[in-house]
Amino acid sequence: MNLNLIHTFCLIYEHQGISRAADELHLSQPTVSYSLKQLRRAYNDQLFYRERGLLHPTLRAQQIYPDLRAALDLIASTELFSHGFEPASSTREFVLMLSDLGEVVFLPLIQSLFETRAPSAQLRIEPLDVPKVPEKLTTGEIDAAIQTPHFHSDDVERTVIYRDVYVVVANMNHPRIQESVSLDQLSAERFIRIKSSIGHDAPENLLLKAGVQLQTGILGTRVVSVPGVVMNSDLLGIIPEAVVESLGWSERLQILPSPIPAERMEVSLMSRVKRRRTAPQKWFIDLIKEGVESMSRSTGGENLPEVRYSRGG
């Protein structure tokens, strides 16, 4: 058993196949297959079985993977810290998961800092898939994610990096809504609503508790689509104020406070816990926080970076 075999095992586990592991290792598939045979002999277990074109881990593989991956991460972190990480000369690819809202509000400032500090590195954005965030952070497939939904994981740290307020948006020439909106008006109007699965259902839940059920005109999937629809219809929307500000449409819409006061929406940076972070990841996480902080200063939003919970270290 050696580090190369452990690395091979982890990549097969994470990619559920030999070909993608071979690509990442820059080895031939027969070479990786031979390494898998050695691993099977060493652990006296099949480790993986094929089903529907993918390699699935056996119970034994599931048991040993977390410790082996943690060991690799620790070694990588130790080596990188001892040699130092130089962002100015790095060619590393950093991977960040963002929703459509995150791409509009946060990405421009993050990218500006990224290009300045690490001009030879690459930044890849993956669509936010909340249920997969813990696994992808743990396996190293992504370096960070920005989201509003909460979850708990022993290997993931959640840091609140921005707080925003939900507002009601209406057409400037709306025939019934002008300057303010009441609960009765919200009950009578139709809305462009966003599917709750992406994590923006808090305002509607508060309204439900007050006995207000929003009428649906459009049920959408992208928060950033709301202002455009509202500007061209009598539909109302409830969205974070930062969306309107970032799109530059604050002068083209009525931005009205909700008749039910609510706590500010928390935007969180999800990352590995500190003990499993590599030096590049630490640098990247600090850069994201700096970018969001600069946005808060320019827009007047509330930025209070704090670790809300840290599980596992």
Rank of each mutant, 00 (worst) to 15 (best):
F9P: 02
Q38M: 15
P30C: 04
S33I: 11
L25C: 09
Q38T: 14
T31S: 15
D23L: 05
L36I: 10
T8Y: 02
T8H: 00
S33T: 13
S35K: 07
L36D: 00
T31H: 12
Y13M: 02
I12A: 10
Q38R: 15
F9E: 04
S35R: 13
H26P: 05
G17K: 04
Y34W: 15
Y13Q: 01
A22R: 00
H15C: 04
T8R: 04
D23I: 08
T31W: 04
K37D: 14
L27V: 11
I12R: 00
R20H: 08
C10D: 04
S28L: 12
S19W: 03
Y34D: 15
L25Q: 00
T8I: 11
P30W: 03
L5A: 12
K37L: 14
L5F: 10
T31D: 11
T31P: 06
E24G: 07
T31Y: 08
N4E: 15
E24T: 11
R20W: 00
A21G: 08
L5R: 10
G17E: 05
L5P: 07
V32Y: 01
E24P: 07
C10Q: 06
A22V: 00
H26M: 06
G17A: 13
S28Q: 13
L36C: 04
H26W: 06
A21K: 02
S33D: 10
C10V: 08
L27K: 12
H7M: 12
S28E: 14
Q16S: 05
Q29S: 13
G17Q: 00
L5N: 11
A22I: 09
H26T: 00
I18R: 03
P30K: 01
L27S: 12
F9C: 05
Q16L: 06
L25E: 03
L5S: 12
V32M: 03
I18A: 09
L5K: 09
